Amino acid sequence: SFQYVPVQLQGGAPWGFTLKGGLEHCEPLTVSKIEDGGKAALSQKMRTGDELVNINGTPLYGSRQEALILIKGSFRILKLIVRRRN
C-alpha cells in the first residue's frame, strides 16, 4: 500500500533534491537524492525513493520534463505531494 505525503518547501530554489526516471525512461518519477542541509532535507518530509505525483496542485503523469518546468516556475513556495510505499 502507499502513503501520500504533502511537502511544502519555502524560500526559493535550489530546493535541494534531484529527480530520476519519468515516462521518458519508462519508470516512475522519483527522488534520487536529497542534499544535506538543503530545503528538502530541512523539511524532514521527503525521502529518496519517493515518487512525485503532484507539484503546486498540478497532477503529474510521470514526465520528468513537465515536472522540471513546474519546479522551475516555483518562486518562493514549492508544494509537492509524494507517494511512498508503506
Rank of each mutant, 00 (worst) to 15 (best):
W15C: 03
K20R: 12
D36G: 10
L68Y: 12
V82R: 02
G21D: 01
V31L: 09
G62N: 05
P28M: 08
W15E: 00
I69E: 15
M46E: 05
K45F: 07
L52F: 01
L70I: 07
G62W: 04
L80D: 00
F75G: 15
L29E: 00
T58D: 01
G57F: 02
T18P: 01
L68G: 12
R83W: 05
Q3L: 11
L19K: 01
W15Y: 05
L29T: 09
Y61E: 15
P59R: 10
R85V: 10
A40S: 06
D50F: 05
G49C: 03
I81L: 14
L60E: 03
R47L: 12
I55H: 00
G73C: 10
P59S: 12
F2A: 04
E35G: 05
A40D: 01
G73I: 05
R76S: 14
I77A: 13
A40K: 00
R84H: 06
G37H: 07
I55C: 06
V31K: 05
H25F: 13
A41D: 11
K79Q: 12
K45V: 12
E27F: 06
I81W: 07
E35Q: 13
R76T: 13
L29N: 01
R84G: 05
A13H: 11
R47N: 07
A13G: 10
M46T: 04
C26S: 14
Q65D: 13
G73F: 04
K79C: 07
W15A: 05
E35T: 12
D50S: 05
L78V: 01
E66W: 07
A40Y: 05
G16K: 03
S43K: 15
D36E: 13
G62P: 02
P28Y: 02
G22A: 01
S63N: 11
Q3A: 11
T18W: 12
K45L: 13
D50I: 02
P14V: 01
K79M: 07
S1Y: 15
K33R: 12
G49E: 08
K39C: 07
F2R: 04
F75I: 12
G37P: 01
R83A: 03
Q10E: 14
Q44C: 12
V5P: 02
R47M: 13
M46G: 03
Q65C: 09
L68V: 10
G22T: 01
G16P: 04
Q3F: 12
Q44A: 10
I77Q: 14
A41S: 11
Y61W: 10
L9T: 00
P28T: 07
F2G: 04
T48I: 12
G38P: 01
E51Y: 00
Q65T: 12
L78D: 06
E66T: 12
K45C: 11
Q10W: 06
V31Y: 06
G22E: 00
L23F: 10
F75V: 14
F17T: 04
F2S: 06
L9A: 06
T18I: 09
G57M: 05
I69D: 15
L19V: 10
E66Y: 06
G62E: 05
A41F: 08
V31M: 02
M46I: 13
G73L: 06
G73P: 03
Q3E: 07
P59T: 14
D36R: 11
V82H: 06
E51G: 03
V82F: 10
N56L: 02
G12D: 07
I81H: 04
Y61S: 15
K20H: 10
L68Q: 13
M46S: 01
V5Q: 09
V5E: 13
R76D: 15
D50R: 01
G37C: 08
S74C: 12
G57W: 00
L42Y: 09
S74W: 06
P14N: 03
A67C: 01
R83T: 05
D36A: 13
L23T: 14
I55W: 01
M46L: 14
Q8S: 10
S63R: 09
C26D: 14
T58Y: 10
F17V: 00
F2Q: 02
P6C: 14
I71M: 14
R76F: 08
E27W: 07
G22H: 04
I71P: 03
E66R: 10
D36K: 10
L19S: 03
K72I: 05
H25R: 14
G16T: 02
E66M: 08
Q10I: 15
A67H: 04
V31E: 02
T30G: 03
E51M: 04
L68I: 10
A13I: 07
R84F: 03
E24D: 13
T18H: 13
G12K: 08
V31I: 14
S74N: 10
K45P: 03
R64A: 11
R85P: 15
Y61P: 08
D50P: 00
I34P: 01
F75S: 15
V5C: 09
S74I: 05
G49T: 03
G57Y: 03
R47C: 13
R84Y: 14
E27D: 08
V82I: 12
L19F: 09
S32T: 09
L78F: 02
I77H: 15
L52D: 00
L19N: 03
D36I: 11
G62K: 01
I81M: 11
L60R: 04
K20W: 06
V5T: 06
V7P: 08
G16M: 05
G16R: 00
G22V: 04
T18S: 14
V7W: 02
Y61I: 14
G57T: 08
G12N: 07
I81D: 03
K79L: 04
R84E: 04
K39N: 06
R83N: 01
E27I: 05
R85A: 12
L70P: 06
V82L: 13
I69C: 13
C26R: 13
F75L: 12
V7A: 05
G22P: 07
L78Q: 06
A13L: 06
P28Q: 06
L60G: 02
P14H: 00
G16L: 04
S74D: 12
K72S: 11
K79A: 07
R76L: 08
I69K: 15
N54S: 07
P28G: 03
G11L: 02
L78E: 02
N56C: 02
L29F: 09
Y61M: 15
I81P: 05
E66D: 09
G37N: 12
V31H: 08
M46R: 05
G12V: 03
R64K: 13
T58Q: 13
D36W: 09
L29S: 03
L60W: 01
G11D: 05
G12W: 02
G16A: 01
T30E: 11
I71F: 05
R47F: 15
P28E: 06
A67E: 03
G73V: 04
Q8E: 15
S63V: 07
R64C: 09
R85E: 14
G16C: 03
A41W: 11
K79N: 15
R76N: 14
L19I: 09
I81R: 01
R85N: 08
L70N: 06
C26W: 10
S1E: 15
P6E: 15
G62F: 00
R83V: 05
Q10K: 12
G57Q: 01
I55D: 00
V82P: 00
L42T: 09
L23I: 15
V5S: 05
I77G: 11
N56M: 03
L23R: 15
L9R: 03
D50E: 01
F75W: 09
